[in-house]
Simulated scan of single mutants.
Amino acid sequence: MTAATAEVLGPLLHRCAQGDEKALEQLYRLTSPQLFALVLRMLRRRDWAEEAMQECYVRIWQHAGDYSPAQSQPLTWMSRIVRNHCIDWLRKPQLEVPDADGTIVEAWADDAPGPLARLAQNQDSRRIAECLKRLEAIQRQVIALAFFDDLSHSEIAQRLSAPLGTVKSWCRRGLERLKGCLS
């Protein structure tokens, strides 16, 4: 690990701690070859190593705020997380049941998003909530009625005792402000 790479990884970890997903992508691109080699060497199975790598980067993302440049180099810190995770992985019982006809896999199949996707959804939800707070109260109320209660503009106008055109304007202006805030 060169000093220049350490100078790049430290700020990336700091940006990860602030929730910057692009920083995580860059961090992954720069460090995954070395860390995957470590995981593969420790676990000795490619399928386990691939799964463990995903979990390791989720842990790195979650604990990026704990990184201290005064205590270690960035890759050393990340390697310690990976090493500890691999040790935990090897300690847990690996119960493998043969599944010749695929019934077990089908029973456990899940279309739910993975850990990184859930993390991204959580962050998107926080961003949307923050942007909604910045809207005027009436715009927030109209958007909530339209999207969360699934009401039409006329139903909202009736519920708020407001003219239909006014409700449409509130909704349009609120959505424009939301779009500006989110972009």
Results as ranks from 00 to 15, higher is better:
residue 77 W to K: 01
residue 87 I to N: 07
residue 181 C to H: 11
residue 151 L to A: 13
residue 93 P to H: 08
residue 82 V to L: 02
residue 7 E to D: 13
residue 17 A to K: 10
residue 105 V to F: 14
residue 22 K to H: 09
residue 128 I to F: 12
residue 109 A to P: 12
residue 12 L to D: 00
residue 182 L to H: 07
residue 61 W to A: 00
residue 41 R to G: 01
residue 177 R to D: 09
residue 169 S to K: 02
residue 147 F to K: 06
residue 86 C to H: 10
residue 75 L to V: 08
residue 44 R to Y: 05
residue 164 L to H: 08
residue 49 A to P: 03
residue 159 R to W: 02
residue 52 A to G: 06
residue 175 L to Q: 07
residue 166 T to L: 12
residue 60 I to K: 13
residue 93 P to R: 09
residue 13 L to Q: 04
residue 7 E to N: 13
residue 36 F to R: 03
residue 11 P to D: 03
residue 137 A to R: 12
residue 157 A to T: 11
residue 10 G to Q: 06
residue 119 L to I: 03
residue 177 R to A: 12
residue 100 A to L: 01
residue 165 G to R: 04
residue 51 E to H: 08
residue 174 G to H: 11
residue 63 H to M: 06
residue 11 P to I: 04
residue 176 E to F: 01
residue 64 A to Y: 00
residue 77 W to V: 00
residue 17 A to F: 09
residue 58 V to Q: 05
residue 149 D to Y: 15
residue 182 L to E: 01
residue 109 A to I: 09
residue 117 A to F: 09
residue 130 E to H: 12
residue 132 L to F: 09
residue 90 L to Y: 02
residue 90 L to R: 11
residue 149 D to Q: 15
residue 112 A to D: 14
residue 5 T to Y: 10
residue 180 G to W: 00
residue 183 S to D: 08
residue 45 R to V: 14
residue 136 E to W: 05
residue 76 T to S: 05
residue 183 S to Q: 14
residue 27 L to N: 01
